[in-house]
């Protein structure tokens, strides 16, 4: 029985369902599964330019585990390029990073949706709120 995989924290899922090669010279040869955490690893390391330790901390995994996820992501993308395969995204072992806040005055817990800019308690309007990690 292998050890269970810890869930990897991701900030947002990819904004696409997949990528498909066009102008193929060979016939379409299937697809590869890119997991959400692999997409997140590529994004953190190569788009946000974080080092592996910072990226690992953000995803809630150890640095070696982050390196493995990142390596797996790069290899999958390379395979898709060389073998002209489609890339499709799958949920994998991820969980969304929801932001929950706690009001220090009335101890209510709440989320702040993206369309609300202010960080105040929705119940007692207090500005004394803290982010629950």
């Amino acid at each position: 029985m292998p050890r269970r995989k810890r869930l990897r924290k991701i900030v947002a899922p990819p904004g696409f369902k997949g990528y498909r090669p066009f102008g193929n010279t060979s016939r379409n040869s299937g697809f590869i599964e890119l997991l959400y955490e692999e997409y997140e690893a590529i994004k953190l390391a190569d788009y946000d330019l974080l080092n592996h330790q910072e990226a690992a901390d953000l995803m809630g995994v150890s640095r070696p585990t982050f390196a493995r996820i990142y390596e797996s992501a790069r290899r999958k993308i390379a395979r898709a390029f060389v073998e002209t395969k489609e890339i499709r995204t799958f949920y994998g072992n991820a969980w969304m990073n929801e932001n929950w806040y706690r009001c220090l005055d009335c101890s209510a817990k709440f989320t702040i949706p993206l369309n609300l800019p202010e960080k105040t308690c929705p119940l007692c309007k207090s500005v004394h709120v803290e982010l629950i990690a």
Binding site: M96, A108, K109, T111, P113, L114, N115, L116, P122, L123
Partner: peptide
């Protein structure tokens, strides 16, 4: 429910 409420930008408040 959490995932959907988040998607539709509905604020969730938990009272214990």
């Amino acid at each position: 429910a959490k995932e959907l409420l988040e998607k539709f930008n509905i604020q969730m408040i938990i009272l214990e």
